[in-house]
């Protein structure tokens, strides 16, 4: 069903056809804006972004720079299951797994790189993670760097806890801690 909108353009009146009066009215509008902003620079809605951070709206906070959560014992929560790497539509995650020598039941990422220059900030990795190890809630907006290499996040740059973490709640966390406390029994 095509909807047709009939536009009812009024024909120009004699004053409008002279054009000069309309020019003056247009100039009045723009000059009003000019002087209002000229004498009240602070009143403009512009935010000087990197220096002057602005709160992100709602769920946009969950689409910011990645981080890897850390357990209470300092080990990464990530178990190098490759779920995020598989889910990533932009192929920006690179993981190399390794085993704890004392605990062969659990792996850890020896290398965990996120190439932010490829990342599409879709949040699929967060959705895919079974361990709740990766999160995108740092509220930092990446970008604006002088070299491409600065857009490569390596493991050390990713490992970070927010205030109030590590939380000792949660099954995965508890089980892992119990494992380690038991000295990695088989």
């Amino acid at each position: 069903m095509i909807s047709v909108k009939k536009v009812d353009n009024k024909p120009l009146g004699p004053l409008e056809r002279i054009y000069l009066l309309e020019v003056a009215r247009g100039l009045a509008v723009t000059m009003r804006h000019f002087f209002a902003n000229f004498f009240n620079r602070k009143g403009m809605p512009t935010i000087q972004f990197p220096e002057q951070p602005s709160p992100l709206p709602g769920n946009a906070n969950l689409r910011t720079r990645h981080r890897l959560k850390i357990r209470a014992d300092g080990s990464p929560k990530c178990v190098a299951c490759f779920m995020c790497q598989t889910a990533c539509p932009a192929y920006c995650i690179h993981i190399e797994a390794a085993e704890y020598p004392e605990n062969p039941a659990e792996k850890y990422p020896a290398v965990f790189d996120i190439d932010l220059s490829r990342c599409v900030v879709c949040g699929m990795c967060v959705e895919a993670c079974p361990e709740d190890a990766i999160a995108m809630d740092t509220r930092e907006l990446p970008g604006g760097v002088e070299a491409r290499s600065e857009l490569l996040l390596v493991k050390s740059a990713l490992l970070r806890n927010l205030p109030g973490e590590p939380s000792l709640k949660g099954a995965a966390n508890r089980l892992a801690n119990e494992y380690l406390k038991a000295g990695g029994e088989k």
Partner: peptide, 10 residues
């Protein structure tokens, strides 16, 4: 600058 101020920009 003038065009910016007219359009509520800096």
């Amino acid at each position: 600058k003038v065009s910016a101020l007219m359009q509520d920009r800096i």
